[in-house]
Design a protein around this nucleic acid. Structure first.
Lengths: 107, 107
DNA sequence: CCTTATGTTCAATATTTTTTGAACAAGCGG
DNA sequence: CCGCTTGTTCAAAAAATATTGAACATAAGG
């Protein structure tokens, strides 16, 4: 029952993607998803004490077309749309992930 | 007499660069500078009717480390720090510039 | 000098984005 | 059915960004 909306990759705009990636919290989430290379539950992406904050940032990432979220039981599994993003904006995600992690990155 | 401050390329942070690039007005300026491949005066980068707006966005770009500004007579010449940015964040600028221009881009 | 052309700065607004807390939803295990 | 876990939504507050207009700075040309 996929009721969670995701944009078509062709409808994704560059500036929206850049805005999504420009926030350190979200960049850290994207890094973690990239390193994992698989779906991760929300609970594995942030501190339980800041659930609504995480929920907000995950929505921004999803609506920007960077991630895909799927409900599984009572949790939600999030993954990076790496291949799609790379086909839409070749090299962009790789370049961002290649940059070294900065101390300000946090979740 | 270089009194205009510019960040060292090594001090430039990824999220600052992404924030700077995420605004359509600034992205359009960066594109124009990239296509020109040389210095351009402010007057060639925006509408004269919105001078202070342009000034603001150029300052954001400069402080983010994306551009270099140099005074020449009564005008200021702006250029893209392409090579430096590419050494700091390999492939990033190229990937951004490779993405097709969107209709929302404007100055 | 005086004037014009380029741009900047400052302060006030307006707008957008983030953060928070309270309330809600839905699945799961007992 | 109950209570617990996971996570969302909503509205309010806080914080960060962007836009505007008035005033200023400085170089160049006459």
């Amino acid at each position: 029952m996929e009721t969670i909306p995701h944009p078509e990759i062709d409808a994704v705009q560059l500036s929206t993607v850049l805005t999504a990636l420009s926030d350190p919290t979200r960049l850290a989430i994207v890094r973690r998803l990239a390193e994992a290379g698989c779906e991760i539950a929300c609970s594995g992406l942030g501190d339980a004490a800041y659930k609504t904050k995480l929920s907000y940032h995950l929505r921004i990432l999803r609506e920007a077309g960077l991630t895909r979220t799927r409900a599984e039981g009572t949790s939600r599994l999030v993954s990076l749309r790496s291949a799609e993003i790379d086909s839409r904006f070749p090299g962009l995600l790789a370049a961002v992930l290649r940059a070294e992690r900065e101390p300000s990155d946090l979740i």
